[in-house]
Design a protein around this nucleic acid. Sequence first.
RNA 1: GUGUGAUUGGUGAAGUGGUUAACACGCCGGAUUGUGGCUCCGGUAUGCAAGGGUUCGAUCCCCUUAUCGCACC
Length: 370
Amino acid sequence: MKIKYTLIKKDNNTKARLGKLETNHGTYDTPMFMPVGTNATVKMLSPEELKDVNAGIILANTYHLWLRPGEDLVAKAGGLHKFMNWNGPILTDSGGFQVFSLANPKDISDDGVEFKSHIDGQKMYLTPEKSIEIQNKLGADIIMSFDECAYYPCTYDYMQESVERTLKWAKRGKEVHNNPNQSLFGIVQGGEFKDLRAKSAIETVKMDFDGYAIGGTSVGEDKKTMYEMIDNCIDYLPTDKVRYLMGVGDPLDILNGVKRGVDIFDCVQPTRIARHGNAFTRYGKINLKNAKYKEDFTKISEECDCYACKNYTKAYIRHLLMVKETFGQRLLSIHNIRFLIKMTEEIRQSIENDSFDEYMQDFIKKYTNK
RNA sequence: GUGUGAUUGGUGAAGUGGUUAACACGCCGGAUUGUGGCUCCGGUAUGCAAGGGUUCGAUCCCCUUAUCGCACC
């Protein structure tokens, strides 16, 4: 069956929404944060550890799994869930973001996109049909339309062309999508141009997808612009479908997204910065490699209930990072993911209590004051 | 004891009689938003063992001392 979103409660003071998402692999509350597991693994974490941090949906990537090990192999293994031993829900990104990160503008045509494989430089060709076909074989609960995440900044004319292209691609993908157990999401583009965002949203909604994503943010624009991008399209999205802000997961951005009516987020930030020695705390991000933590025998965060905070000190984790033991990176990855997920738990609670606005102001005050 | 070769930052080292002593590692910071995992960007020796001399000018040439290595007695 398809996913089913139910709006449980709307916040009084903001557009924040409390919702419920039913999937073939369990029911989860929104707003939620989805950890990213590009290569069918959330880097450094086992599925058991993901359960421990109370993860819901996790992300995998079409482009990466297409190259290795190949969608046919995953299908042969019995699908992505079985292959990676994750029985929670999975969402696969379409490979659209790799248009942004791997291809040149000249390689993008209305038909599809030519990539150079990041592994061996081989030419690869991805089309909306191909992306959906791969995703059908991978078997995630939610699959994404193949879109163009345009460069920022780009001209109005280019963005207009890009939005048209993404709409056509969405339509083509929807036509070939043939797995009734997978929900297909459309993606709103349009950059910072208000009318293009509106048009993209309206036309995408007309195609009637199972959920809607806002793409093309966090590509180099400032925060104000990013929030405007959301504001400029979110009211065109139906209230009875889930809304996903792609690639966003900075704590402050999650709050601002929720405030504007976003339900789900994903981001590589918690795991990437963890591998580089950084941890989220209520009082801002800290760098565990800093000399000041050398003899700091306290936990990363007093408020945190994660495995790392329950058992280890900053001094020990710093030591692991300094000697390049990967256990340090693992502990920080666990902590950072738990930090964001716990944050969404509190956000939900605050919406339920009609105190989201207060929660957000309080969080920002602590997080930015230091 | 005699002869001989060395001595450059936290480490391994390059280098030249003349503006800011290369590079690497380490260390100290910073970045990181649909992941091309262990990356990227900065900073880091007011000084070349110590003292004296030659020179317009010495880390580089000379002398003495110290330390270390090698060879011989």
